[in-house]
């Protein structure tokens, strides 16, 4: 049978996420992902430098966008979650938010179509930074022993502590960075997978043997477009959620109650 459109490999698998190195046969780590991360850093730095090159009292449009993003993180995340002392974390949180947002957006840009965050390594480093941050802040605020007591010993009767303390150690010290990394990774991974399935699935349906099945490919491609819209929402939401959870962990480290 001759296909109506191009034959594509289907179903897609994890190999989708491991593109060839830029220079074939040399430096297997040098795929497009390091370049995307460098590009994201450059975009964030340049955008804020240009937007704040000559700040005006009545802001220009670029300055207004930059101020809105920073103001949103500072007011909506740092001050709302951590409290008034949270302002000193606003620069880190804003950088984190912008970096994750830009790298997530790469998953939607035609020609790139792949977020570096779809590889567990990049979210893992970001989560590790958050883990170091909230533990460092807690230790500096309370001292090591008091911080450990505050974070892993819940206010419970003493005879329950043998059960609760290991759970608390597990959740606050081990699971938090793990879940932060996995959430961002799995969202970007699943999002890319969904787009690939609907797009390639359209090709497979268009090549189907039965003429009645072929028009369904249009539905599949329409779903791919709709899912791209959903991915836009997810990209912004995951950047927000990662920053929000980092802020909430920092706030937990700073508070004097359990």
């Amino acid at each position: 049978m001759v296909g109506v459109v191009a034959e594509v490999p289907f179903p897609p698998d994890v190999g989708e996420f491991f593109p060839e190195p830029v220079v074939h046969g040399w430096a297997p780590w040098l795929t497009k992902f390091p370049f995307l991360v460098w590009l994201a850093v450059a975009i964030v730095i340049l955008f804020f430098l240009i937007a704040y090159r000559s700040p005006k009292l009545v802001p220009t449009r670029t300055q207004w966008i930059a101020e809105s993003i920073y103001g949103f993180v500072r007011k909506g995340i740092a001050e709302d979650v951590i409290g008034p002392e949270g302002v000193r974390f606003a620069p880190y949180l804003a950088s984190l938010f912008c970096f994750i947002l830009v790298t997530n957006m790469f998953g939607l840009v035609p020609g790139i179509q792949m977020s570096p965050n779809a590889h567990i390594a990049f979210p893992a480093i970001l989560a590790l930074l958050s883990w170091v941050l909230y533990n460092y802040v807690g230790v500096r605020e309370h001292g090591l022993l008091k911080y450990l007591k505050l974070s892993v010993v819940p206010p419970a009767p003493w005879y329950m502590l043998w059960l609760l303390v290991p759970i608390e150690i597990f959740t606050t010290l081990l699971m938090r960075p793990f879940t932060l990394a996995l959430r961002l990774f799995a969202n970007m991974f699943a999002g890319h997978m969904i787009l690939v399935v609907f797009t390639l699935g359209g090709f497979v349906l268009a090549n189907a043997d039965s003429v009645l099945i072929r028009p369904i490919s249009l539905l599949s491609w329409a779903m791919a477009i709709a899912m791209t819209g959903l991915e836009l929402l997810v990209a912004v939401l995951q950047a927000y959620v990662f920053t929000l959870l980092t802020a909430s962990y920092v706030s937990g480290s700073l508070s004097t109650e359990h």
Binding site: L182, A186, L245
Partner: peptide, 23 residues
């Protein structure tokens, strides 16, 4: 609203664990 998103993210993670462990 911030607590909605925190709660949503923590629960959504369970479904995402399913995707990750499926592979």
């Amino acid at each position: 609203l911030p607590y909605v998103w925190i709660g949503f993210a923590l629960i959504e993670l369970l479904a995402l664990l399913g995707i990750a462990f499926g592979f």
